[in-house]
């Protein structure tokens, strides 16, 4: 496009020249190519406005969603633990497991909260292999570090850690780690925990999604 035509087009689009006024109408009539480009530019601007409107509406309708926040955190944690590379996909079969796990956790919570069990559940209550919890368990100074012994396995192990409020069984924090045996919650996360927490850990074969072992502990801050 010639620079003259380009300049005229900009003046028409910016409204500097009124396209419906005598000058604009004459320019467009005299140059059909300019007229065609002008009309396509208007249509393009209209589409850009439409796309912008669609974006604004979508963003305005977003509400705070704890489940979405947990999902984002889970994915990003896996990215960060993988050094920024694509995280391994959660195998589809495994995605149903949290529901079953939540149900199991609820049953366990009832078990834990029975008077004779109130002090601390033993991980030996689990059937199958046990992840040995190191800390926090029992009475502790703080919930600064969560640590456990590694589950011996020939391939990568994913540890799924969940912290619960034992009085309501509400999940406070969850974290997914790969081949790590400790986790340090952020200040905000420790602040969100009450004086007593119950936390559980599940070790899963990252490749096959086979559950390798469970662990659980109750800890109270002094």
């Amino acid at each position: 496009m010639s620079s003259d035509r380009e300049s005229t087009l900009e003046r028409l689009l910016s409204g500097e020249i009124d396209a419906r006024g005598p000058e604009g109408a004459a320019l467009l009539k005299a140059d059909p190519t300019l007229k065609e480009i002008y009309e396509r530019s208007l249509a393009l601007q209209s589409s850009l406005n439409g796309a912008g409107e669609e974006q604004r509406q979508t963003l305005q309708q977003l509400a705070s969603d704890p489940a979405a926040a947990r999902q984002s955190t889970r994915v990003l944690d896996r990215v960060w633990q993988g050094g920024g590379s694509d995280p391994p996909r959660v195998p589809r079969g495994l995605r149903l497991v949290p529901l079953a796990f939540a149900a199991a956790a609820a049953i366990l919570a009832i078990w834990i909260l029975l008077p004779e069990q109130a002090s601390e559940p033993s991980t030996s209550q689990w059937l199958g292999n046990v992840v040995e919890i190191i800390e926090p368990r029992g009475t502790v100074d703080d919930f600064g570090t969560f640590a456990w012994k590694p589950v011996a396995h020939q391939s990568a192990v994913q540890y799924e850690l969940h912290v619960f409020d034992p009085t309501t069984d509400r999940e406070i924090v969850s974290q997914v780690l790969v081949d790590q045996t400790a986790w340090t919650p952020t200040f905000g996360q420790t602040q969100s925990m009450g004086a007593t927490i119950r936390w559980s850990l599940r070790a899963v074969d990252l490749r096959t999604a086979e559950v390798l072992a469970h662990g659980s502990a109750v800890a109270t801050q002094r």
Binding site: L62, D65, S72, T73, L76, T186
Partner: peptide, 14 residues
């Protein structure tokens, strides 16, 4: 990173 992850809750919503 926590703040960023929190803000990214918009992604599942969008």
């Amino acid at each position: 990173r926590r703040q960023f992850a929190q803000r990214m809750q918009c992604v599942p919503g969008i």
